[in-house]
């Protein structure tokens, strides 16, 4: 099943590339939309697969009685990274490198914000370790 799916993805990508090449000659904006669309479709497909992995890991975590907070934080960070990456790539494809780098910056900042409570906890511990 899996090998068929990778064939599907690659085939889809190649067909879309070919079509985009043709359309781009006449109508660049449509080629851009086409690229976005194909990207989204592949992404959605991958998201479904990733959901399987995540569900498996969640099950494992629950059975091992492990705190879900860590896992959810990591998952959130990766989700943010994915979305930011997606937006940045599209902007870059459209020739807007400046906007792309801004989107990436946004992703970085949000990820760092997610890390703030962790950092504060570590710092507090370290301060507690120091003799008063």
């Amino acid at each position: 099943m899996v090998h068929i799916e990778i064939l599907q993805i690659v085939g889809l990508g190649l067909v879309a590339t070919f079509l985009a090449l043709i359309v781009k000659e006449h109508n660049p904006s449509f080629a851009f939309l086409l690229t976005v669309f194909v990207g989204v479709i592949i992404f959605i497909f991958l998201a479904e697969q990733i959901a399987n992995i995540v569900a498996m890991l969640e099950e494992l975590a629950e059975s091992a009685q492990i705190n879900m907070v860590y896992m959810e934080t990591i998952l959130k960070i990766i989700g943010i990274a994915y979305i930011a990456e997606f937006g940045a790539q599209i902007a870059k494809d459209a020739g807007q490198g400046a906007i792309a780098s801004k989107i990436e910056l946004g992703g970085k900042v949000i990820i760092m914000v997610m890390a703030i409570p962790i950092i504060t906890a570590i710092i507090e511990t370290v301060i507690g370790l120091l003799p008063n």
Binding site: T73, I74, I77, A81, A84, E85, E104, I111, A115, I118
Partner: peptide, 15 residues
């Protein structure tokens, strides 16, 4: 599973 980009460094840091 991460997209290979600059964001990877940040994600690694947080993890």
């Amino acid at each position: 599973l991460l997209p290979n980009s600059q964001l990877q460094r940040y994600v690694r840091l947080v993890i």
